[in-house]
Design a protein around this nucleic acid. Structure first.
Length: 489
RNA sequence: GGCGGCGUAGCCAAGUGGCUAAGGCAGUGGUCUGCAAAACCAUUAUUCAGCGGUUCAAAUCCGCUCGCCGCCUCCA
């Protein structure tokens, strides 16, 4: 089966095949390094992490490039505010970004080039564009001539006249057309600068992606991705620069993911309603964030809330609980025992791979794919419930193969990769360390309760139980008369 | 103003013309238990914002209306 991908360029889902058989070249716009990353950035990296892992699962070789923009207006401004260099500032936030990626459990892209390390390539494209008449220099600045490029606006579905009518662009006297955008900016005193044929300066915003994608992936490549907000102007301008320069198609498939919203509003620095990745990860395990992100299709908006994260946590726990229960099953089956698993449940389990793959083939529908996993969990629980003390070998084999498949497939989203038993234990220990009650007190109260129960003093026993529950401690009276306790998750 | 998207149960969310409208959370009922908790099971939309149309058949296609959101300026 082939993967279908929604292509922003055509506005449709299309069967995907790479230019070079079996080898996909993917470029994703990374961050501009001037601040800590927020959960919108997290979604972006998570989505492409999942996409790359899935394409590799399908047997493709994937070359995954994600850049850093480490020179730009915002970086210069922020560096000046902090009385530091753009280099120091950018490196500081690139390091922070790498820490965040590590915490999120994302795999590394194959290459993470920086704009400042590719200045010669940038200058070379600009020079070429001037030669070909697509760009012009005005007192040290170089602009791209949008009117000269016939397809300008095709990605974002707009034309120059409409954009002019928008009238939200500041008129720059130097430009031939107000929509012309800067390829090279002359530097002001005190700003970082590189020598160029047009004098000392630095690259404009969009050109670095054209230069780096060409250098590492070639003039034409398969997939280019980023957030929806990059469609215009960033990606539109990249197409113009690259195709004007090479005369070849730039990118086959454009993938754009939706935003993370808070209270249904876009999260952004200008609105001040953003949460950084580190703030989130202080409160929730990375895996919960991953589960939350992959519970929705990547192109829809994703509304972040405490409730949504709590739901994600509970859902994830349900999956881990099932795996943990299967792990606790006896090692060997009873040869004399009849199988407990019905045909329907067995089919559900055995067909999981097919159903998961067809969901993911359909434009990476991770939400549907997770739904299939939950269905199988339900089937496995149902079988487990009817299992006798000495279960049949075929039942054990079925449950183990189900658990193995779930673990493998969930791994494409970076989920369920912890040992299930250890996962639950670690989590409880973490919660316990924040509780106002310690294990010694708990044990002591439980001894009191056991004594009360021995005397059939139920009201006292229940009182202690309620007291513990108030402190997030759940207790369980075992069949053998002992009482165990655990932290409520 | 131009362009694009969305509106499915209490909440979240899949569904790309045709089998019972996935799945999760919450709720309710049950198994278990002295009673609980946990776990598990069962159950919860005759209907997909509204109104028309196309079709043998529409949540899915088309048109209009209402509501929400995004891009057009830095943005994942």
């Amino acid at each position: 089966m082939t993967v279908s991908i929604y292509n922003t360029k055509s506005g449709k889902k299309e069967p995907f095949s790479p230019l070079e058989k079996g080898h996909i070249k993917l470029y994703v716009c990374g961050i501009t390094a001037y601040d800590y990353c927020h959960i919108g950035h997290a979604r972006s990296t998570l989505v492409f992490d999942m996409i790359v892992r899935y394409l590799r699962y399908k047997g493709f070789k994937v070359t995954y490039v994600r850049n850093f923009t480490d020179i730009d207006d915002k970086i210069i401004k922020r560096a000046q505010e902090q009385h530091t260099t753009t280099e120091e500032l950018a490196n500081r936030f690139i390091n922070a970004f790498h820490e965040d990626m590590e915490s999120l459990g994302n795999q590394h892209p194959d290459l993470e080039p920086k704009a400042t390390e590719n200045i010669p390539e940038i200058i070379s494209i600009i020079t070429d564009l001037i030669h070909k008449g697509y760009a012009y220099e005005v007192s040290g600045d170089v602009y791209f001539k949008v009117e000269k490029f016939a397809g300008y606006g095709s990605l974002s579905g707009r034309n120059l006249e409409d954009m002019m009518a928008g009238a939200r662009i500041s008129i720059n006297e130097q430009k031939v057309n107000p929509m012309d955008f800067a390829l090279w900016k002359s530097s002001k005193p005190g700003e970082p600068t590189w020598d160029s044929p047009w004098g000392p300066g630095r690259p404009g915003w969009h050109i670095e992606c054209s230069a780096m994608s060409r250098k590492f992936l070639g003039e034409s490549f398969d997939i280019h991705g980023g957030g929806k907000d990059l469609i215009f102007p960033h990606h539109e301008n990249e197409i113009a620069q690259s195709e004007a320069s090479t005369g070849k198609p730039f990118v086959g498939t454009w993938i754009h993911h939706g935003f993370v919203t808070i209270k249904d509003e876009k999260m952004s620095k200008s609105l001040g309603n953003f949460l950084t990745i580190r703030e989130i990860l202080e409160q929730y395990p990375a895996e919960v964030l991953r589960f939350f992100v992959f519970s929705s299709h990547y192109r829809t908006p994703l509304d972040f809330s405490e409730t949504a994260m709590k739901d994600a946590q509970t859902g994830l726990d349900r999956l881990y609980t099932c795996l943990a229960e299967v792990a606790k099953l006896p090692e060997h089956g009873d040869p004399g025992q009849n199988p407990a698993a019905g045909k329907k449940n067995a089919n559900k389990i055995n067909s999981l791979v097919d159903r998961f793959v067809s969901a993911m083939d359909n434009d990476f529908n991770s939400a549907q794919a997770l739904g299939h996993i939950f269905e199988v969990v339900k089937s496995m629980n149902a079988i487990r419930q009817t299992l006798p003390a000495a279960p049949a070998e075929s039942d054990l084999a079925l449950l183990r193969s189900g658990a193995k498949t779930i673990t493998e497939l969930a791994g494409i989203m970076g989920l369920l990769q912890h040992d299930p038993v250890a996962y639950i234990k670690t989590k409880q220990e973490k919660i316990l360390s924040h509780l106002a009650i310690d294990p010694r007190t708990i044990e002591s109260l439980l001894r009191d309760r056991t004594a009360a129960r021995d005397e059939k003093n139920w009201s006292r026993a229940d009182e202690i139980r309620d007291e513990l529950l108030k402190n997030n401690i759940e207790i369980k009276d075992e069949a053998d008369g002992t009482t165990s306790w655990q932290v409520k998750i």
